[in-house]
Amino acid sequence: MSRLVTGDAVVLGLQVARLPSRAMALAIDLVVIVGVYLLVSVVLLSSVLPLGPAAAQAVGVALLILVLVGGPVAVETLSRGRSLGKLAFGLRVVRNDGGPVRFRHALVRGAIGFVEIIFTAGSVAAIASLVSAEGRRLGDVFAGTMVVRERVPGSRALPVAPPPPAVAGQLAELDLSRVPDSLWLAVRQYLSRIRQLDQGVAWSMAVRLADDMVARVGTPAPPGLHPAAYLSAVAGERQRREAERTFGAPAAAPVAPAAPPPPLPEPQPRPRESYRPEAPPPERRTGFTPPG
């Protein structure tokens, strides 16, 4: 996974395409390019052959450069970095900051690729890709680009139980004023990518973020609540409060009086309470057993 930082200081997690997938995509592109070159050369050379061998050689050289260099450059520019082979294997050429490539990037890649792929039979490009930590060949280094995977296989989602209805009343009493924006941003990014994370990574991140959230609000988490469900419930409570401040509290429908619910046990706040929805055994800090 490559950690790219955009101009807006946003960290992008992109999976870099490695040599095997890039080689197979290049093989498809070369088959298409060679086929187009042979077809066009037969048509043009048969037309200019009566003009003499010198004219035929000039047309052949111009056609070779036009198809082998101009063709890939035009395709990558118009498709924003996706040739036919890259489309088949779910790859794309992007800039070092994660943005789409432009004509100058495609031109540099195509010109240098004509030398390192065609003239050297791909040996220079293969060596450069193996040496580079991000799998970049010389054309990518000089153009400031890289090839990434667009279709990343997703891991099995971590099962998260919904919060019980009684939790809503406890969350409404939380003091969220001491939670910094950086923690809210981390929670929002985690919840949006939880289905793309490995189970162990998702569990450890949920426990760490829940610990930080509990320490900020100063109130222990409800017993028996999953840490990811706790984060989702707290984030939803913050959005509900912001919506009320912006649009006003919604009018409640008249309901028949009901018996008051039994009182909940009063939580005992501690300044740096770890996220403990259940009584933990002595050898574990949080008391959770990682799934699977």
Score class of each variant (00 low, 15 high):
Ala128Val: 02
Ala172Ser: 04
Val131Leu: 12
Ser132His: 10
Val179Ser: 12
Ser204His: 10
Ala128Gln: 05
Leu176Glu: 05
Gln196Arg: 13
Val148Ser: 10
Gln170Asp: 09
Leu185Gln: 09
Arg156Ala: 15
Gly139Tyr: 07
Gly200Thr: 07
Ala133Val: 07
Ser204Asp: 13
Asp198Phe: 00
Ser155Ile: 05
Ala143Asp: 14
Ala186Asn: 07
Arg193Ser: 15
Arg178Ala: 15
Ser204Ile: 05
Ala161Tyr: 04
Tyr190Gly: 05
Arg136Phe: 12
Val179Pro: 11
Arg137Lys: 12
Leu191Trp: 10
Gln199Cys: 00
Gly135Tyr: 05
Ala161Met: 10
Ala172His: 02
Ala206Pro: 09
Arg137Asn: 06
Pro159Asn: 00
Tyr190Trp: 06
Ser132Arg: 06
Pro165Arg: 08
Arg195Val: 10
Ala143Ser: 14
Asp175Pro: 05
Leu209Asp: 00
Val148Asn: 09
Arg208Gln: 15
Leu174Asn: 01
Ala172Thr: 04
Leu197Asp: 11
Val152Gly: 01
Arg136Asp: 06
Phe142Lys: 08
Glu173Arg: 11
Leu191Asp: 13
Gln170Leu: 13
Asp175Tyr: 05
Glu134Ala: 13
Ala161Glu: 12
Gly169Pro: 02
Ala172Asp: 06
Asp198Gly: 15
Ala172Ile: 00
Asp175Asn: 15
Val131Tyr: 01
Gly144His: 06
Val148Trp: 06
Gln199Phe: 02
Arg149Thr: 09
Ala202Val: 02
Ser155Phe: 04
Val160Asn: 02
Gly135Ser: 12
Glu134Cys: 03
Arg178Val: 14
Leu183Arg: 08
